[in-house]
Nucleic acid binder design. Sequence first.
DNA 1: AAATATGTGTATCAAATGATACACTACTGA
DNA 2: TCAGTAGTGTATCATTTGATACACATATTT
Lengths: 210, 210
Amino acid sequence: METSADLFKELKSFSEPELQKEILKHGKIIKAKKGDILIREGQYLNFLPIVIKGLLRVYQENEDREILLYYVGPEQTCMMSLSAAYFDYYSTANGIAIKPSEILVLPAHLIAEWQLKYPSWNKFILKTFKSRYDELLSAFGNVAFKPIQIRVKDYFSEYFKNEGSKKIPVSHQTLANDLGTTRVVISRILKQFEKENLVKLHRGYIELLY
Amino acid sequence: METSADLFKELKSFSEPELQKEILKHGKIIKAKKGDILIREGQYLNFLPIVIKGLLRVYQENEDREILLYYVGPEQTCMMSLSAAYFDYYSTANGIAIKPSEILVLPAHLIAEWQLKYPSWNKFILKTFKSRYDELLSAFGNVAFKPIQIRVKDYFSEYFKNEGSKKIPVSHQTLANDLGTTRVVISRILKQFEKENLVKLHRGYIELLY
DNA sequence: AAATATGTGTATCAAATGATACACTACTGA
DNA sequence: TCAGTAGTGTATCATTTGATACACATATTT
């Protein structure tokens, strides 16, 4: 179990000691294994999850396909949960842990209360709204205007920017799920990229050659 | 020019008398003609526009195409402006008046101030974030998963739901711009719909037969 | 070692979408 | 009235994307 010191080493955003006390008082830490589904579309949410460690993937799904909305990393929360919990509504997306994760869970009613009391909390809430919106907007523009090939390249660039590695540890299926298309389409494009010497393909990961 | 009584007849959301006074003190009303471009992509925004009368269209554009993000009607504000003004940032979309409009313009720095002072203002801000996010999310899912034909039908349903009329006053080009495709594609689909007796086509408007 | 699940390569076909070109009509403003 | 602009119809062709099917390889589990 986390000690409170450990917890606040991770949660740098919340500077007010009062707020920290409140978090300790009302929050619960839960652990999720890789693959645990934490939020389902349609589910009523009366709690707000803030990731301490690990990574969540939030996505929408259709009958046969899915598409990535965003990832939730440490010190972040999920727009779906925030909006659903704040307005007492249900989620319109799914959330799954893709790494073993530790998550701070707060009762929904506190979101609005704290927002008026603690500036750093208010800032956190608005930052979340803004940055998730920006991400979604950018994804939207991409899906509307860019061919999949470009979106795959963008995906690689994004990964490289964030992780600094040219070995991208995703299967073709995962890539297809993130980009909202099918595995065959991705395999075809990747093979083409390999012919153009842009990448080298391996089982389970893709190596960038540029 | 609006009298203050007229103004607050329109702005029912802001109930606190204090807030109303502040709005009168700091706000300016501007008028826009149909076709006036109010916000451009890349523009720094240090003001927040709230529509009193009329309608704005907020959209993203690519070299040769554009796509609708949302409309801003009376008593609403634009997510782009809100987010850009709140965080002192630039707009990532364009806004144009598509009806003659009257717009209340507020200095950006007041957004955060008022948010802590006036609950109705805070609610307005968060509602805006949430509902614009929801709209965008839904549009995203549609673009990612639904064929254009369905999106055209959805567009008609949406219009009928909001306006109650089966005469949809859009040109093919406008429809194409809203849905992020080209005019020829729309004309083709509409002709097909007409053959199936779903619509009757006229110059400048489309009549629903269902 | 056998069984099972996951990952990859690839061919074939169909459908959706986009690009381009041109004709024609209706409206608008000088 | 004439010219210009916006709106519409439609054909042709290329490209992109998706659906389906199957082979085979590599991991994992029992």
